[in-house]
């Protein structure tokens, strides 16, 4: 599992990208999806996920709707167009950040 700092700095990018691809997800589902995709190495703690989701809604990057599923109210999050734009630019920024880090830390691709 990665350190809290790394996850904190990338959470917004990950959540926006996830919703950009999937369109609509609920909180637990995001948690599960990220855990599966990262083989359990990237864990969204709920304590960080929900404040972020509520903030993104407030900023107009996500919208929500509540549906009854299995007798429980489930709050789905969908991405807005502004959210998509933010997702793209954050992803691009991270791409160049990776390249910079590769140079800074002198990382060579591992031989297989």
């Amino acid at each position: 599992m990665y350190s809290k700092e790394l996850i904190k700095g990338t959470l917004r990018t990950v959540v926006l990208r996830l919703l950009d691809q999937e369109g609509r997800l609920y909180g637990y589902q995001m948690n599960k999806r990220v855990e599966d995709l990262s083989d359990g190495r990237y864990t969204l703690t709920e304590g960080a996920l929900y404040p972020l989701l509520h903030k993104l809604v407030k900023d107009g990057l996500l919208t929500t709707e509540t549906e009854k599923v299995n007798g429980r109210a489930r709050r789905y999050y969908s991405i807005t167009e502004a959210g998509r734009a933010a997702a793209t630019s954050r992803r691009e920024e991270f791409r160049s950040f990776l390249l910079t880090m590769q140079t800074l830390l002198d990382l060579k691709p591992e031989k297989t």
């Binding site: 589902q29 509540t66 109210a73």
Partner: peptide, 11 residues
Amino acid sequence: LSTELLDHLCC
């Protein structure tokens, strides 16, 4: 928030 977390915990 309580409704949202209820669903999360139940899941």
